[in-house]
Design a protein around this nucleic acid. Structure first.
Length: 402
RNA sequence: GGGUCGAUGCCCGAGUGGUUAAUGGGGGCGGACUGUAAAUCCGCUGGCUUCGCCUACAGUGGUUCAAAUCCACUUCGGCCCA
């Protein structure tokens, strides 16, 4: 397992920082399978593309013969990672964490090879730790060092509460590295502080320190903030092909390059050539985005589904075509008040919300615009209800007799 | 433990007795423009079959014709002192 140039390029693709490159090269040069660590607290069972950046890197290590150790942070999750947070996290119950872990693994193994993965729970060691051991662990760091962290410092200076238990988290994560004898720990750039704890703790017990490999934080579909469930800007690995395609295709242009780099294997030299052509006006930006969307959808749903999604996307948005999969709702036969129909079909949050859509002129029933918020509509068979360009529902009369 | 300041709608943040469902910004949604992008512009953004009614400004009680605004207590938080 010598480190040829190609291997090195694969491993460092998209990587922001390696601490340190020299150590990583030395470890690789040993020619033995390395322990590649990833710690997760299974607080968000729905994995989105933001998480897959790191997972793909794990997979690349596996393909080179290394072993992934996935640490399910059943104990750390009850503490809550303060990384990048501006607020104290809610503390999860142990039962919640275990349930989430199962869902997590299912999605995790869509990318990472289960045959080359060992899954461990950090409760295995933390549950057995004595108070004295915890004290000794916490003695390894000072308050000033903790407050150097940007997120803690911002909260502290901004007058936001920081609970003392949050200081435990980085130390616990570091201790995980000691326990599993990690050679490399992967993480987003926001994990730097925690990963460095691992190095120090390993060193303090006379073990070879792990290498920290940091990947960029993927921005969400809004193009502004990191992809995160609470911000509602995610693309989930479990999203339906059409859904996934649409979100990728409507991505802000500025994200296309990073998505290609972090979420696909498209050779980087091809990519920069294409981007240059787009800038020069030789290629339409949408063409590149279509390629991106197809590539990623294919990874999760296969190339057939990706092609079909691309076709459907074009069909719907090039003209006034109506999507083929519209949610259907049954309502009773006869006269119906439009706002309540909108609520029933999930197109409006409340009757008032529905009224506002009508007043805003964005509601049609069988493609006829509704302008009066008091409007009644005759439901006699199958009808099309629509809000704006993209929100559809089919209304089906439910015969009173049946 | 003592002192002091604070808690407003999804978020930030005005408002300190009465045209107040509550200024403004962000976000979100709908529309125009466009490339299904960005930028810009316009509208909407508590509930109710709504020219009206109801519920809301941490919680509970009180003062008042009238409170998010005044008082008391409670809960939570910041800062200073220990």
């Amino acid at each position: 397992m010598s480190i040829d140039l190609k291997t090195w390029e694969t491993l460092t693709r998209g990587v922001t920082e390696i601490i340190s490159e020299a150590e990583l090269k030395a470890k690789l040069a040993k020619g033995k399978p390395l322990n590649i660590k990833l710690g997760v607290d299974p607080t968000a069972p729905d994995i989105h593309l933001g998480f897959t950046v790191v997972m793909r890197k794990l997979r690349q290590f596996q393909d080179l013969g290394h072993r992934v150790i996935l640490i399910v942070g059943d104990y750390t999750a009850t503490v809550g990672d303060p990384s990048g947070k501006s607020k104290t996290r809610r503390i999860l119950t142990h039962a919640e964490v275990l349930a989430n872990a199962e869902t997590y693994k299912q999605q995790f193994f869509k990318i990472v090879d289960p045959a080359k993965t060992e899954v461990v729970y950090n409760g295995d060691w933390f549950s057995k730790m004595t108070f004295t051991e915890v004290t000794n662990l916490m003695a390894q760091i000072t308050v000033a060092q903790m407050l150097e962290r940007e997120d803690f410092r911002n909260r502290y200076e901004g007058g936001q509460p920081i609970s003392l238990h949050e200081f435990l988290y980085p130390m616990m994560q570091g201790y995980d590295s000691v326990m599993i004898e990690a050679d490399v720990e992967l993480g987003g750039t926001d994990q730097k502080f925690n990963v460095l704890r691992g190095r120090e703790l390993q060193r303090s017990v006379g073990k070879e320190p792990q290498v920290g490999m940091f990947l960029p934080i993927l921005l969400g579909t809004d193009g502004r903030e990191k992809m995160s469930k609470s911000l509602g800007n995610t693309i989930g690995v479990n999203d339906a092909p059409q859904d996934m395609f649409h979100k990728l295709f409507t991505l802000p242009d500025a994200l296309v390059e990073s998505y290609f780099q972090l979420l696909t294997d498209v050779p980087l030299e091809n990519l920069s050539a294409k981007l240059a052509q787009v800038t020069a006006g030789e290629i339409h930006p949408n063409l590149l985005k279509e390629e991106l969307a197809k590539n990623i959808v294919a990874q999760y749903h296969g190339t057939d589904a990706a092609d079909a999604a691309a076709q459907e996307e074009k069909r719907i948005h090039s003209g006034q075509a109506i999507p083929s999969n519209i949610p259907e709702f049954q309502v009773s036969l006869g006269s119906q008040w439009v706002p309540s129909l909108l609520v029933l079909a999930g197109l409006a949050k409340s009757n008032g919300d529905g009224r506002r859509f009508i007043e805003g002129g964005s509601v049609t029933f069988d493609e006829v615009k509704i302008t009066d918020p008091k409007a009644q509509v005759e439901v006699t068979g199958t009808h099309l209800l629509r809000v704006g360009k993209r929100n559809f529902a089919r209304i089906i009369a439910l015969d009173a007799a049946s």
